[in-house]
């Protein structure tokens, strides 16, 4: 058996959902995420054009950086002119803005929410803490590199970045989406085991399903 076959078999393997109690396991799906190929060139370009102009943020402020999202909504910076709108549920949103430091308790919820979003989905990591830990680099409770746990499309450096920097980041994300570079969901499905290994390494009491579809 060569390497490709092994990978294929691994992909068909069901998730164990070992963190859940026995009787709850049947309530949750045990299917692994799969990669979804883009459509043909012109249709995908058209959809990317629409996706870039209708970015819905999930309303989950994960750290102090979420504070910068509020001025964005109000009249001074007004993100709605770029087609960016807050959305209260992960099912309907397409952009996840990680606001700064993510503690272990938060990263558990981040992973859950991220997996519940319907692809294509994009992640903007805001602040230095998501890049290398920032001022919390030696903390016992905050992660240092976000891209080990979920795929990240855009980093916005700073502590805190101003709303203007956020708008610049969103514009950068738009450009990337239009060129079709933002395939974070497929990246997550391809490297699923690696991401899960990293997540489980820090989340010690894993009491949720392995993939939250």
């Amino acid at each position: 058996m060569d390497k490709k076959d092994i990978k294929e078999i691994e992909k068909q393997m069901k998730l164990a959902n070992e963190g859940l109690p026995e009787k709850e396991r049947i309530l949750f799906s045990d299917v692994r995420p799969t990669t979804v190929a883009p459509l043909n060139k012109y249709l995908e370009n058209f959809l990317n054009w629409a996706r870039a102009r209708s970015l819905w943020i999930i309303g989950y402020g994960t750290g102090c950086g979420a504070m910068e999202l509020r001025p964005l909504m109000t009249s001074r910076f007004d993100m709605s002119r770029f087609g960016i709108a807050p959305r209260p549920t992960p099912r309907q949103s397409s952009v996840f803005v990680i606001g700064g430091y993510a503690s272990i308790k938060t990263i558990k919820r981040i992973v859950r929410s991220y997996e519940q979003m319907q692809g294509p989905k994009f992640v903007i990591a805001l602040g230095s803490c998501t890049i290398n830990g920032g001022m919390y680099y030696d903390s016992y409770n905050t992660i240092n590199r976000l891209d080990y746990y979920i795929p990240v499309d855009i980093y916005i450096a700073g502590c805190m970045p101003r709303p203007e920097a956020l708008i610049a980041g969103f514009n950068k994300l738009k450009e990337k989406i239009q060129t079709g570079e933002c395939e974070g969901m497929n990246k997550y499905a391809e490297n699923f085991d690696w991401y899960k290994k990293n997540q489980k390494q820090i989340i010690k009491d894993w009491n949720m399903p392995d993939y939250n579809w």
Binding site: I104, G133, Y140, N141, I143
Partner: peptide, 24 residues
């Protein structure tokens, strides 16, 4: 701290930098 396994982190004999380098 959900699922903490080390000694309580605010005790002064707990080395947070070492733990951070080891874990994250």
């Amino acid at each position: 701290l959900e699922g903490w396994e080390e000694i309580p982190p605010m005790r002064r004999d707990f080395n947070t930098l070492e733990y951070s380098i080891k874990t994250y």
